[in-house]
Simulated scan of single mutants.
Amino acid sequence: MSAPELPAQLRSALEAKLHGLARDEIAARAAQISKTYRDGGNSRVIASSADALAYALVRMPATYAAVAASLGALVELKPDFAPSGLLDVGAGPGTASWAAAETFSSLRKFTLLDINAALQTLALELGRDHGRLAAMTCRRDLHALDEAEPSDLVIASYLIGEFGEAGRSTFTERLWAKTGDTLLVVEPGTPAGFRRIIELRTQLIADGAHVVAPCPHDGLCPLSAPDWCHFAQRLPRLRAHIQLKGAELPFEDEKFSYVVLTRNPMAKRFSRVLAPPVVGKVEVSAKLCTADGLQMTKVPRRDKAAYARARRWRWGEAVDKS
């Protein structure tokens, strides 16, 4: 996967918001918000415009990278998909909407749903100078999802973990009911995040959905604990990002799990690289999820053409073994 960076216009808007503010105060707010999320809290901790900005500066780059990488996987396998409308559920500061706008020039209607007023206000302010995002609409009442019109593309990123186990099943039904064509769900790349993805995947396949990515099939996941399906996206850190997190490295790696589901069966299936391949002088070894299940594939150097292709495989890629 290539490294998706925040669009220049979004970076500039975030930097402008930070101008004149005390970095120490914003850093302290960001640290408190991060601790709350780690302790199982939710977006209610974000209560002011300063809180929303602190959250956006720390989390927007990583969330954007994960969503953009997932949308890239969608485009790779459904190159003709040209959605006109997006429903961004749990939109926060609008991160997924920015990623979708960058991915699909066809998008004209952006509907953002989030219960947090501070994050919604920030989303509107960040998007107001964007040619298409300037027309986004935001709602934050409890009935917004049920009353929203179905959209070609629906995204729920880093959201379903905020629901209890009983509530997730109902929420999954509500998401799918608003999906005109394709649904993307992204979660943290942890065992718990992966389990939530698998639960949603299983439920919606039973309701007639078909997997686009990352799975090359609609069958049961072949992985078993303690293994789990996740991917990593390296992303550059903004200068403010480095300052607020007290980071030393100019990049970070966001680990995420995701699933893209559609209402129509996929015509062609590709295998998925589930871990960094091991490239040796004799062979390339790779862990692949295939239409026939999990395979530990070894491509010998004596097969020069296949070996050359396998050397270019990257974790998370869809690959054609034929």
Rank of each mutant, 00 (worst) to 15 (best):
L159T: 03
I160H: 08
I160F: 10
I160M: 13
G161P: 05
G161K: 10
G161A: 12
E162Q: 11
E162K: 05
F163Q: 08
F163V: 03
F163L: 13
G164T: 12
G164D: 14
E165M: 10
E165F: 11
A166S: 14
G167C: 06
G167W: 10
G167L: 11
G167H: 13
G167D: 15
G167Q: 15
R168V: 11
R168A: 10
S169N: 12
T170N: 11
T170Y: 11
T170P: 00
T172Y: 13
T172M: 08
T172P: 04
E173Q: 15
E173M: 11
E173T: 15
E173W: 09
R174L: 12
R174F: 01
L175F: 07
L175E: 06
W176H: 05
A177C: 06
T179C: 13
T179K: 03
T179E: 03
G180F: 01
G180Q: 05
G180N: 03
D181M: 10
D181H: 13
D181N: 13
T182I: 07
L183S: 05
L184R: 00
L184S: 02
L184C: 02
V185Q: 09
V185I: 15
V186T: 03
V186R: 04
E187Y: 05
E187M: 10
E187N: 10
E187K: 08
E187C: 08
P188Q: 12
P188T: 09
P188H: 10
P188Y: 09
G189L: 06
G189E: 07
T190F: 02
T190I: 06
P191I: 09
P191E: 09
A192C: 10
A192P: 05
A192G: 12
G193H: 05
G193E: 02
G193Y: 04
F194E: 05
F194V: 00
F194H: 15
R195E: 15
R195G: 13
R196P: 07
R196M: 14
I197L: 00
I197H: 01
I197Y: 02
I198Y: 12
I198P: 02
I198T: 14
E199N: 12
L200I: 10
L200R: 07
T202V: 13
T202M: 10
Q203E: 11
Q203M: 09
L204G: 04
I205P: 02
A206Q: 12
D207Y: 11
D207R: 15
D207L: 14
D207E: 15
D207F: 11
D207W: 10
G208K: 01
H210W: 03
H210G: 01
H210P: 01
V211D: 08
V212N: 00
V212T: 07
V212L: 09
A213T: 09
A213G: 04
A213F: 02
A213E: 02
P214S: 06
P214F: 07
C215V: 00
C215M: 04
P216N: 06
P216E: 04
H217I: 00
H217D: 01
G219C: 02
G219L: 08
L220E: 14
P222K: 09
P222D: 09
P222I: 11
L223W: 04
L223I: 07
L223M: 11
L223V: 00
S224M: 14
S224C: 12
S224Q: 14
S224W: 12
A225M: 11
A225E: 15
P226Y: 06
D227W: 11
D227M: 12
D227N: 13
W228V: 03
W228C: 09
W228E: 08
W228F: 15
W228G: 06
